[in-house]
Design a protein around this nucleic acid. Structure first.
Lengths: 76, 76
DNA sequence: ACTCAATGTCTAGGTTGCTTTACATTCTTG
DNA sequence: CAAGAATGTAAAGCAACCTAGACATTGAGT
């Protein structure tokens, strides 16, 4: 069987509630970054929608806030 | 304030139940790839644990199987 | 045995995720 | 206004995700 074709543009940009969850706890982006063990710029980039987190990072975020991934991220 | 330090090695490798879910439906990797609009190699690589899907792709997988992400992927 | 679908793996190349460094802007508080 | 804290961005570089194409092996039919 022939290998399948797949379109070039992968789906992207998942909305998230990070900024709100962070505000509820009065954490700075820096605070959150340290708890997630990523850089502050990564937190900022995710919050401002420049890119999506990896799946492992999404799991760390969900664990930190003790919520399912779907309660924080939505595929818009 | 100084920018924070972050460790080099990012967390990776999330276990998944793709192969089982696929078998339950009697889908080939190719079938699944088409439904997800990714290449067959991507499906195979994810199943064999060579890499994790992106968050957007994880959402597409969860939507396809009508399950929460956490029911398919676990951060080991 | 032959054929063909299915799977596993490899290469090469492009795009995204994440890092460090650095700088500008905004907001608060003295 | 001055000084710091928080935030937004940008560039360069490396690692991870994803692609198309190709090839080898395995298993199921016929």
């Amino acid at each position: 069987m022939l290998d399948g074709l797949a379109r070039p543009g992968r789906g992207r940009i998942v909305k998230n509630r990070l900024k709100v969850l962070r505000a509820e706890r009065d954490w700075s982006q820096q605070d959150l970054a340290q708890r997630l063990e990523v850089s502050r710029q990564s937190v900022n980039a995710i919050e401002t929608g420049r890119y999506d987190p990896s799946l492992p990072l999404a799991f760390r975020i969900a664990a930190l806030f003790d919520m399912p991934i779907e309660a924080i991220f939505t595929p818009d």
